[in-house]
Amino acid sequence: MDKPAICIENLYHDYRGEWHIRIPHLELNFGTVYGLVGRNGVGKTSLMNLIAGEIAAMSGSINLTTQHIGHINSQTSYPGYYRIRELAALFIAQAKCKQSVWDTERFNDVLGIFSVDQATQYRHLSTGEKAGCHLAIMLAQHPSIWLLDEPTLGIDVVAINQCLSILSQTFLDDGPCVIFSTHQMYELERMTDRILVLADGEIRWQGETEALHEQEPSFRKAVEAMLQPAKEAQA
């Protein structure tokens, strides 16, 4: 349960002087859900892209103890004219080819929870159904690291609860290292074991989600307090 999945050392990355990320040391374990919070534009998406290996950091290292990574963000998308069952067929074929994991039963279960008709074309899915579809595709591959970048953005309350329910069960089965970024306090409090607060390009605070209650009884206020710019906090 305390086995490290991601080890970040001396990470530095910036973008045209507009923002930067500096993380001297961060170790993230399997069997733990880390909530990543921060203001819009602080670099949460970029951090996940760095971990996923989609962009290369300017300096420092990100060591992963596994290659099985699942990544969902606002860019996640599949060819619109494909019916869901055709997408599934593609994945099955790919899995055979690459000798990788594809769990058809889990894929169907997750889609079932979201009531997605597999005969539907991807482009005709609602936002909530798309979210379910992305989750189904990711979870069917049983990754050991889940990078979930605002996976519930724009979806309705019912679908959100379905997402959380699926995530909690499959998390129990697979024990992955999960990084989950969201602005919804409701999701943070329910889903995460630990919280990473990203502010001014650095991890300003990390600790147990429930420990925030010791700082401030209202979870929402505790997180808001963490996100205040350092200058304001000193004033």
């Binding site: 859900v33 609860n161 959380l164 329910s165 909690s168 069960q169 998390f171 129990l172 329910r190 429930e210």
Partner: peptide, 15 residues
């Protein structure tokens, strides 16, 4: 069970 409760309550099973 922890599993069933996690499903019903929609919270992290570790909790």
């Amino acid at each position: 069970s922890v599993r069933q409760l996690a499903r019903e309550l929609q919270i992290n099973p570790n909790t």
